[in-house]
Design a binder for these strands. Structure first.
Lengths: 116, 116
DNA sequence: CAGGATCCCTAATGATACTG
DNA sequence: CAGTATCATTAGGGATCCTG
């Protein structure tokens, strides 16, 4: 029972009542090594699995599919599979995913001002 | 030589030219389990080491001091030590740290709309 | 009070090979 | 093409004890 949320970025799911803060919550969804990059790539529109893999050459297939599944479970990404052979699968941001745009933008702005 | 930046959140320092994105950069600074919480706590003003520890009871001393040092090295936090006995040390956000406010706010906004 | 130093564990990531 | 499965690695986090 209980079978909590079983989402991503596990260390951030252990938030207790005291340390819980909305910022941490958001970071459970978009934090980690690959999610920001994946989301960033999908901001410009839906992409196929293979396209994403080519767009992010340093990611392994395991990490890519794993992160995509977590993003899908968190309702940030939608998976559209066309039942053809060979398979055709597209990933695109959901409404909640697109709504991350201000978050991404503010991070980009901050990075441009304060990096290096 | 090169001795790059040697900052925090190591996995995110391995960004190569291709996957590098400003969002990831920002997350190297404020990501992880504790940094957002620490920054969040300092947003309302400077605090002493002991105050922070009490404000975040679930953090260990090791993690607290380690994250504070990383934040200091990244110039997000300033450490002000008064040479008295017993020691009196205060941590406060730097200008760059305060400039994270829009980032934090956008994350809070997103969390309020899309959490559970 | 504000740390430092060790030892340990697990989650997160990665490499490689295989499949409908 | 779009994934699975298995094994190995490592970095992040934690427990505990010690100190100027």
């Amino acid at each position: 029972m209980t079978a909590v949320k079983e989402s991503s970025t596990n260390h951030l799911n252990k938030l207790d009542a005291i340390t819980a803060c909305p910022v941490s919550f958001t970071l459970t969804k978009i934090g980690g090594r690959w999610k920001p990059i994946i989301i960033f790539n999908l901001m410009t529109g839906g992409k196929r699995y293979g396209e994403l893999k080519r767009a992010i050459p340093t990611i392994t297939e395991k990490m890519l599919i794993q992160n995509l599944k977590e993003l899908e479970a968190d309702n940030l990404v939608e998976r559209i599979a066309k039942p053809v052979i060979p398979p055709h699968v597209e990933y695109k941001l959901s409404e909640a995913g697109k709504a991350l745009s201000p978050v991404m933008k503010s991070m980009v702005d901050w990075a441009r001002k304060y990096n290096v």
